[in-house]
Design a protein around this nucleic acid. Structure first.
Lengths: 244, 244
DNA sequence: ACGCTCCACAATGTATACAAAGCCGTGATC
DNA sequence: GATCACGGCTTTGTATACATTGTGGAGCGT
């Protein structure tokens, strides 16, 4: 195939649309007209509508009154709330894991990940394997979401996390290699350690509180971007969805 | 129109399918074959697929590997987790409302609802306007979900609540007028009062804890049904989705 | 000049025919 | 006897033509 090729047209349309929305080509509030869009993507309206339906599931589009789809817009408060919500949900996963107990293997896996994350920091203060940290951090949070063994919880975390600005990797994007964020990584990694210890020690309340506070690091980073360096807005994933 | 008539075929299909799933006509794990289903509903496959897509959003269907849709199944643990999740989310709404403060009017509305709920209980122990309680309780929880003024939170609560067994009205269905549940209503109503007081007093942690414990009343009722009176399973909404 | 109604167009909603892909059974070969 | 490959069938995926609905504008009436 000439275009981004997964197996179905609907999937290709989904990927293409998602990319256009997250990059800001299709800005918040934009109404998506089916005929021209289908023409642009060189597919028919049927798989296009299918893709738009899935983007509603993802929270990137809304159904407009009287039919049709509109790119969803988020104010700064929505972004803050979504981050808080991630903290609440990850906190719940952590608390339930602690309360209900976790099998040895997944817990060991989480500990291994934290050890590997330690390895991303070098000896000198500025030394850091940023890309590797980003990847391992994503894995850590994915594991955490499964740790309680609850598909309901995992699913809900995945859902919130699909909003890119609420994702644990939101401020770990390539372009955002800012020193302000780098500093916060040491704190974040300490929280990773404490979180795992709390779960191992069956300290549910502590685990929950730690996961929440961990997410609030993202909020701090957001506050920094909004107040100090708005140029970063365009370099961070999904903040194109934000208005105001 | 001869069938359940909202304006579009897709909407009619959505309603018809939802009804069949919740009532158990289409049981958990059933694969939905498009051609026969479309024939049954007397519509074409296009709006049918649209409706099925929306039921995936609602969490009542899953997309099967290799295409197609399957009725989602929930084990008892999933139901328990969904109830816990509702408690967590309502708790977050309550906490944020308390922390951020609420305008006078919506808070007064909530207090009015609790007063009206009081009115559902008569003087003698057994006296109760069950139907009215059920309606007002639904309103109370709806108001609560909006109280933090966060659309992100409201939306997530609505989403979890769409799973009928996780809804605040789950054990207030017509057929479930059991004395065991009636007793819990006095406790529930006391929690309503305390919750509103906590929010008014800006006691975030207390409000959150109360909302969580409030949801756990539903869990207790579920435990009762599972352990003591499984005949109620068929009379409670959406428990047809549950297997095992 | 303001407002209401009706018409026309544009956009979405629906049906149907066709394409492709996945699955299952059968047969052949090792 | 088991496994792999092939072929047909079932089921989903896609395109397109047609129906319907909502919207905006123009023209007429007050």
């Amino acid at each position: 195939m000439t275009q981004t090729s997964n197996r179905t047209q609907a999937t290709r349309a989904l990927i293409a649309l998602r990319e256009r929305i997250l990059s800001g080509v299709l800005g918040p509030g934009t109404r998506l007209l089916e005929v021209p869009l289908a023409e642009t993507l060189a597919i028919s309206r049927t798989p296009l509508r299918e893709a738009m339906g899935r983007l509603v599931e993802e929270g990137l589009l809304e159904r407009a009154r009287g039919g049709g789809f509109v790119v969803r817009s988020f104010g700064p408060q929505d972004v803050i709330d979504a981050i808080e919500l991630r903290g609440v949900l990850e906190g719940t996963a952590a608390r339930l894991a602690a309360e209900r107990g976790v099998a040895a293997e997944p817990l060991a896996m989480l500990e291994q990940l934290t050890a590997q994350l330690d390895g991303c920091f070098g000896n000198s203060p500025g030394e850091l394997d940023f890309e590797r940290y980003s990847e391992l951090n994503a894995q850590f949070h994915d594991r955490l979401s499964r740790l309680a063994g609850s598909e309901v919880i995992r699913r809900e975390i995945e859902r919130v996390t699909r909003l890119p600005f609420a994702s644990p990797s939101a401020f770990l994007a390539d372009g955002a290699n800012a020193s302000a964020f780098r500093h916060s990584l040491h704190v974040a990694q300490d929280q990773h350690h404490a979180l795992v210890a709390a779960i191992r020690g069956r300290e549910g309340a502590r685990a929950e509180a730690l996961a929440r506070e961990h997410a609030r690091l993202a909020r701090r980073n957001l506050d920094y971007v909004l107040a100090e360096d708005r140029s970063l807005l365009s370099r961070l994933p999904g903040l194109a969805l934000m208005i105001g």
